[in-house]
């Protein structure tokens, strides 16, 4: 009898426990629902405020839609390709040729022998040169600041002198650096290159510092145990461990610099961006689209080369497919505008 009573009591207790647990779960769930609703309301309110700040108006979109449709017609001028309706590629090509966006080859009227040819690099090469020269100019500074900014090389808190310098450089976007350099010679490809070089010091230097923070202690100690001096310990023990990531990061910054070089043109820094800006002010939408296509080809080419190099260096890195590179192009372009 007593056993039955005991087991009966214990069953009742178990049910109570389950009820309590269930109630606890329900209260938690309700609390989460209330909090989610509150977060949603706050989020919606902030979004409305933001739209109000930028003067967003659906009515305006509707009002100007016909104009936009007209512009679209000029962005993509109708034509024919093999008898089928297609974009008028010839209109793009004639502008690309006329303004020498890619390159021009002159044969000097002496037949097809290639040594008689003169190649005139086009606007694309000005943009590419800005990105590349900016990278090379900024690289020594990035190396010095990046290495000295690491706590493994310069003891805390002195490393913050160098980290701080890089933070200040990064806090100012490359476009603003170009404006700062205006007294050196106006907004030209030269000052744009200086701006990109400065930007490279901050960004690449920071990436170098981060890579150095992750090096292993063992090889540094092993190099020290051979009787090597301080600089040799830094170079052979630390830097040699991060040679591959350094090259990979440098290639990545070349990609970013090429995109920044395009935006430099928009404020008058020359190259493809400048052509784009000029055609925009003339409302020549077909020419704008032709320029955008060349920008697309340039940036994608640099990215493909950079990715190949990085994937070769890392060996095991999964390389991004060409289709993914092309599909994600707009968002990368937008991102570089903000950087």
């Amino acid at each position: 009898m007593s056993t039955e009573t005991e087991s009966g009591t214990s069953e009742v207790q178990t049910d109570d426990e389950i009820d309590d647990a269930f109630r606890f779960i329900r209260i938690n769930k309700r609390a989460r629902q209330v909090f989610s609703l509150f977060a949603l309301v706050v989020f919606g309110w902030l979004f409305t405020l933001a739209l109000d700040q930028v003067g967003f108006s659906v009515a305006e979109i509707l009002e100007y839609w016909p104009d936009f449709e007209d512009a679209l017609g000029q962005f993509f001028p109708p034509g024919e390709l093999f008898g089928l309706p297609f974009v008028d590629v010839g209109a793009y090509w004639s502008f690309i040729q006329e303004r020498n966006l890619i390159m021009q080859v002159e044969t000097n009227g002496a037949g097809f022998m290639f040594w008689d040819w003169t190649v005139i690099p086009g606007q694309m090469f000005i943009t590419l040169s800005m990105g590349f020269a900016g990278l090379v100019l900024g690289l020594p500074g990035a190396l010095i600041l990046g290495v000295l900014g690491s706590e493994r090389v310069t003891p805390y808190p002195f490393n913050f002198i160098f980290r701080g310098t890089m933070s200040v450089i990064r806090a100012i976007p490359a476009l603003v650096w170009a404006l700062i350099y205006i007294p050196l010679g106006g907004v030209t490809p030269f000052t744009a290159t200086l701006a990109i070089g400065t930007d490279t010091m901050g960004n690449l230097g920071r990436l170098f510092t981060d890579a150095l923070e992750e090096v292993e202690d063992g090889p540094i100690e092993a190099i020290g145990s051979t009787g090597a001096n301080g600089p040799q310990r830094v170079i052979f023990g630390m830097l040699s461990q991060v040679a591959s990531p350094f090259i990979a990061w440098t290639m990545y910054i070349l990609e970013i610099n090429t995109r920044i070089a395009v935006t430099m043109g928009l404020i008058g820094g020359g190259g493809l961006g400048y052509v784009l800006q000029t055609q925009r002010s003339l409302f020549k939408y077909t020419n704008m689209m032709a320029t955008i296509l060349v920008i697309f080809v340039l940036v994608i080419s640099v990215e493909i080369v950079s990715q190949r190099v990085r994937s070769y260096i890392r060996g095991t890195e999964e390389s991004q497919g060409i289709i993914a590179l092309i599909v994600e192009f707009p968002q990368r372009m937008v991102r570089s505008l903000w950087q």
């Binding site: 063992g218 090889p219 100690e221 190099i223 051979t226 009787g227 052979f236 040699s240 461990q241 591959s244």
Partner: peptide, 28 residues
Amino acid sequence: DDVAMVFQQHYLIEEMSAYNNALTGSLG
């Protein structure tokens, strides 16, 4: 440099060749 050490975890520079790693023994 006249006392050499072989470590448990070898502590080599993995990015470098065997020859260049061996050469670091003469850094001192």
